[in-house]
Structure formats: structure tokens, C-alpha cells
Design a protein around this nucleic acid. Structure first.
Length: 285
DNA sequence: CCCCAGGTGAATA
DNA sequence: TATTCACATGGG
């Protein structure tokens, strides 16, 4: 059964940019439909003009996940403060910051350090296939991202089999920590952005970059401004006359993050994601 | 074979 | 506090 969401004029959505920009790792587009698994549901989405067609989840779930309630026009005009981000907004107009399930987001970005996006997708798919529950209505077989309890059964060897490499020990320890403190997620959700990134960086394998991604995509702190090598390069080239260093030291990370937040304001995370989506054209070579 | 990628933690000075 | 290094893996 297919549900339909009619988008209003003031509800812009670019589904390709939103699901393909690299913020979430479980989506692929097959013969016109985006297919993914979110919160135990195998979902298919297709956008035709102003009509969003959904299978596998009801309207409210999809509206919530895609954050259709974000006032995107207001958000984009608030971050549209210079020619560089303006061009990025024009290219990906309608890209939305998803509301990702927190635990999946946490483990996904633990898997996303010092690597590339296809490898992260592979790792998350392996974790789901080996430890997640089979999703009933998946046409090709689909697996939910595993719960903390399900992943607690995973050993260091299991994580290595899922191609996490040296991150395996970090993953094992994070899962164990959450298992020993079941209310941790709820307490995390109650924290401010700055408090949350302190709590997140206390976890093994989670540094400032992963913490900012989890704050942005998993906790909805839209002012979070994750700084990876691409963003660092873009900010250095277009926003301050930067000497291109190789290493991104903690002090340098903090400097770029602060600059992003102060320049773009309370929705700096949106600016970050539009710049990231435009990284190939904004960054030389 | 090389270098790079949505970095992080430990060791060292 | 700042610098340096190792680390598993996949893409180009």
C-alpha cells in the first residue's frame, strides 16, 4: 500500500539530496525509488513533483524522519549570508537534515572516522545483516539496524568481520557502556548541544567530529557544525584565508566550528550540510 | 605501488 | 599544551 504526502508550496524537499548526501548510510535508489530501513521499517520513497509516495511507513513517520516540519525556507534564508553558501543552497535547495534514530546514528558515525562513505555504508549494512532483525515486508530481504541489546552479543571479532577494523574495540566498549546504563540515551536527549558533545566525546572512538554529527543528525541540535577535512578545506578556502595544513588539530577543529556557528547562526548545521553537499565544486581537485 | 577518506587515542616532549 | 604516530579498510 502506498501512502501519499502532498507537499505544500512552502515545504520544499529535494529527496535525492536529502537521502544521497551522506548524512545517512542505509539508502539506495533503485529504479526510481529510494529504498532504506529506518526504525525497523523497510521504506520506499519516491517524489514526483509535489507528491511524495511512501511505502512501508505511515505519513507521520515519514514526515518526522524527513523533518518536513522544519521551516526550511526560513532556515535557508537565515543561513544565506554569503555568496558561497548561497550557491550551495541553490544547487541542493530542499535538502533536509534527517531525524535519525539515535543509536544507529551513534554507531554509524563511530564507523565513519578516517574512512570513506561507501565503506561506512558497507559496515552499517553488515552490522544490520548479522545482528539486526529481519524486516518482514522487505521485497529484497532487509534488516533493521540492531538494538543495543542485540549488538551486545557482538564480540570484537564480530565487529572486525563487519569490516570495522581498528574501530571494533571502540564499538564493543560503547555498546557495553550503553548496556550498563540504559537511561543514558534519554539523559543525553535532555542535554544542551554543548553538554551533549561533552557526553558523546566521553565515549571511546567518539571525538569532536563524530559527536557533532550525532548531535546534528541524531539529537536535532541544528546549530552543530561538524568539521571534517572537506569542510575544513572549504572554510579555509572561502571563509578565512587559511594556510592549508594537513592535520586537523583539536584547536583548529574548535576554531573552525566556532567560526561556522558564529557566521551561520542557530542553523549552522544546515549550512554545513549544504556546503558538504557542494564539496566537489567548492574544493579544488 | 601510491594517496586519501565525514578522525581518534595514546605516547611523547 | 602541542606534535606525532598508528590504525583497518576501501576508493581512485
Amino acid at each position: 500500500m502506498t501512502e501519499r504526502i502532498l507537499l505544500e508550496r512552502d515545504e520544499p524537499l529535494d529527496l535525492d539530496a536529502t537521502l544521497g548526501c551522506g548524512q545517512a548510510f542505509r539508502w539506495q535508489k533503485l529504479s526510481g525509488w529510494w529504498e532504506g530501513v529506518v526504525g525497523g521499517r523497510a521504506i520506499r520513497l519516491r517524489l514526483e513533483g509535489h507528491r511524495l509516495e511512501c511505502r512501508g511507513a505511515d505519513r507521520e513517520f515519514v514526515r518526522q524522519y524527513l523533518a518536513l516540519d522544519h521551516d526550511l525556507e526560513a532556515i535557508l534564508s537565515s543561513i544565506d549570508r554569503d555568496a558561497v553558501v548561497h550557491a550551495a543552497i541553490e544547487v541542493s535547495y530542499g535538502l533536509r537534515i534527517l531525524r535519525q534514530p539515535l543509536f544507529e546514528c551513534l554507531i554509524s558515525y563511530l564507523c565513519a572516522t578516517n574512512t570513506n562513505i561507501p565503506a561506512v555504508r558497507h559496515r552499517v549494512a553488515e552490522l544490520s545483516a548479522r545482528f539486526g532483525e529481519r524486516v518482514a515486508c522487505g521485497d529484497p530481504v532487509a534488516y533493521a539496524f540492531p538494538s543495543p541489546a542485540a549488538l551486545a552479543a557482538a564480540t570484537d571479532e564480530d565487529f572486525r568481520a563487519c569490516r570495522l577494523g581498528y574501530r571494533s574495540g571502540f564499538a564493543e566498549r560503547v555498546v557495553a557502556a550503553l548496556r550498563e546504563d540504559p537511561s543514558w540515551e534519554d539523559r543525553l536527549r535532555a542535554l544542551s548541544y554543548e553538554e551533549a558533545r561533552v557526553a558523546l566525546t566521553a565515549l571511546p572512538g567518539i571525538g569532536p567530529k563524530a559527536a557533532d554529527c550525532i548531535a546534528l543528525f541524531g539529537l536535532g541540535h541544528l546549530e552543530a557544525f561538524p568539521v571534517d577535512l572537506w569542510i575544513r578545506r572549504i572554510m579555509s578556502r572561502h571563509y578565512f584565508d587559511g594556510s592549508e595544513q594537513k592535520a586537523l588539530t583539536p584547536a583548529e577543529y574548535e576554531r573552525v566550528r566556532r567560526m561556522g556557528i558564529s557566521h551561520f547562526g542557530p542553523f549552522a548545521g544546515y549550512a554545513q550540510e549544504y556546503l558538504y553537499a557542494a564539496r566537489r565544486s567548492l574544493s579544488p581537485d
